[in-house]
Write a protein that binds this DNA or RNA. Structure first.
Length: 587
DNA sequence: GCCGTTTTCGGCCCGACTGTTTTCAGTCG
């Protein structure tokens, strides 16, 4: 199989990780990290640059890494990577997830005790072997043991809906307390990343009320452990295993601190590099001139109030938090405006929802009413097709019955004068050979067809790509549903060349959804730049099986914004009439 | 390993915190 940009980036990241564990120069590891991000954010396949010998023109890729990439493309291996793999036990890579353990200590422990497995490390913490090592002690050993304990009980990351709920309860607990002025979420949750590790909350408040504020937090029923508590920071663990860091922030520098804790780390690094280029330095307290010696001149802070101000001081426009991943956002903002990104209020209708006709929990009418209440103008109902027996998929006769029900409902809505409309859709299985689940004459009767893979998900990647391509070549297919089939934190998606499918789908004039279910968020935002470049249409689809599921659209919009999509590229920002015309045009 | 109208060598982003230490290395975000 041809190496995709994603494959290549994964190999480079692996190099960076193993280099760190091998004790190599940290900047060398950083170079591989940078190269990995450069590869990931390229619009075109790296293969093209390998063929034309222009790899080293990409910033972050020099002669050496270009040779590694070429070797990987041509042979499927990288000698330097293989060498590292043989010298570093696989088990140690997982140790990097342990809080308080970095590459240096991992090496030290491994070399001194000769252990490579997590369970052995835990035992070594308990029997005092770790504590006896030079540079470590009883507290380090206990911290490591406790962290392994947590890892055994909970995943290190959670879905974004869970993180949103935790952050909401923390906010609720604080916002009415006396002296609290401002509460903001930062970190990966503010960036709307698909999964969240720690949750960061920033608070500005009267210094006199900090104590009572923290008292209120640690007394919350969901708080099971206080990890740290000082004058400006309080870290807690919730009963779902989430770590929440609450930080007190000085009002005068709130924007700089907010930016700092929003990250991403890579974005911050890029920003600080830009600051240096302008003779400035950036930290969590603001922007400062550099002295001739290259030190921060802390006595002469540059004035700012908002994040916009801080970016402007660095010669940049404000970058929406969703895009702060060091994935080409600085280039993007020069050619676009932050205002262009699709917003939740741009979404005018709901596409991809289920009813009791298949595996949904409520009737079409109930789903429609919920859409109306949420302010949407239409609902594209998409129950499962006949092959999805496990989900009560519709045979042809039931399809016709459902159409009659939808016609009746639409007639009623028309008489009510509210203008609400239900589109007849189907979530058709894409069969293993790429056919859709009904004959063309039935497919022709739907307003639109979502094609999804629900069986034989582990098909060989090349065969999976062909399966999807054939489905897209059917002129009745409108939208590809959850393309990789991943379930976040649970199941990897199929590793087929999604970018090839994106090109194929864009050329065919069909769309690929952004499934907004917090367990899917598929397609991945990382393909956004490439998808935009080839003109792909998308849609933010809740895949709702219950009226509450409609609200998941918010997570999908976050992903669409991370991907850099503007409203015109998202199908369900269209009016019902414009959307109907787009569907017709696709046929 | 990458990069350069100040440099082809010597930098590479920044500060807080912690624990293990007598001045700092490692980790974290």
């Amino acid at each position: 199989m041809a190496a995709t940009n994603k494959d290549i980036a994964a190999r480079l990241e692996e190099m960076a990780t193993l280099l760190r564990l091998s004790g190599a120069n940290e900047f060398k590891a950083i170079a591989f990290d940078k190269a990995a991000r450069a590869v990931e954010s390229m619009d075109a396949p790296v293969l093209q640059r390998v063929e034309t010998g222009t790899l080293t023109l990409v910033p972050g890729i020099g002669v050496s890494i270009a040779a590694d990439i070429r070797e990987y493309v041509e042979t499927g291996r990288i000698t330097a990577l293989d060498d590292l793999k043989t010298s570093i036990p696989k088990g140690l890579i997982r140790w990097l997830d342990i809080s308080g353990l970095g590459p240096k200590k991992i090496r030290k422990i491994h070399e001194a005790l000769g252990i490579t497995e997590m369970a052995d490390l835990k035992a070594a913490c308990e029997d005092g072997r770790v504590a006896s090592l030079n540079g470590l002690g009883a507290k380090s050993a206990e911290r490591i043991r406790k962290s392994i304990d947590w890892m055994e009980r909970f995943a290190d990351r959670c879905h974004i809906d869970e993180a949103t709920a935790v952050a909401g309860s923390i906010r609720d607990a604080m916002q009415d307390l006396p002296g609290v002025r401002r509460i903001e979420v930062a970190g990966s949750l503010r960036r709307r990343l698909e999964t969240i590790g720690d949750i960061d909350v920033l608070v500005s408040a009267d210094s006199a009320s900090v104590e009572s504020l923290f008292d209120g937090i640690v007394a919350l029923p969901t708080v099971v452990e206080v990890l740290a508590r000082g004058p400006s920071k309080c870290s807690i663990r919730t009963d779902t295993g989430r770590q929440v860091d609450i930080r007190m922030v000085d009002d005068a520098v709130f924007a700089a601190t907010w930016m700092y804790f929003t990250g991403s780390k890579a974005h911050n690094v890029a920003l600080r590099q830009r600051a240096r280029e302008r003779g400035l330095t950036l930290n969590e307290y603001g922007v400062f001139p550099l002295t001739p010696e290259g030190e921060a001149d802390l006595a002469r802070p540059l004035p700012f109030n908002t994040e916009e101000d801080v970016y402007r001081l660095l010669g940049e426009s404000w970058i929406p938090p969703e895009m702060r991943e060091d994935r080409g956002e600085f280039e993007w903002i020069r050619a676009h405006s932050a205002e262009e990104l699709v917003r939740e209020t741009d979404i005018r209708g709901v596409l991809h929802a289920h009813s009791t006709w298949s595996d949904g929990e409520t009737s079409i009418e109930t789903m429609a009413m919920a859409c109306m209440e949420a302010g949407y103008a239409y609902l594209g109902i998409t129950d499962h097709s006949r092959s999805a027996a496990y989900a009560n998929g519709l045979d042809t006769e039931r399809v016709f019955s459902q159409w009659r029900e939808i016609d009746h409902l639409n007639d009623r809505f028309a008489r009510d004068g509210g203008g609400f409309r239900i589109f007849k859709g189907i979530e058709s299985d894409i069969l293993t050979d790429g056919r859709l689940d009904y004959p063309d004459e039935v497919l022709a009767g739907f307003d639109f067809v979502i094609g999804s893979v629900h069986s034989v998900l582990d098909m060989a990647p090349d065969a999976m790509l062909e399966r999807f391509k054939r489905a897209v070549d059917n002129r009745y297919l409108t939208i590809i549903g959850h393309p990789t089939g991943r379930l976040l934190l649970r199941r990897e998606g199929n590793a087929f060349d999604l970018e090839a499918l994106i090109r194929h789908t864009a050329d065919a004039g069909a769309a690929i959804e952004i499934n907004a279910n917090p367990w899917r968020l598929d397609m991945d935002w990382r393909h956004g730049r490439m998808a935009r470049a080839c003109g792909l249409m998308s849609a933010v689809c809740p895949d709702a099986h219950h009226p509450d599921g409609i609200a998941d659209i918010t997570y999908g919009v976050g992903i669409a914004r991370k991907a850099g999509f503007a409203a015109p590229q998202i199908l369900n920002t269209k009016s019902a009439d414009a959307l109907a015309a787009w569907f017709q045009n696709r046929h």
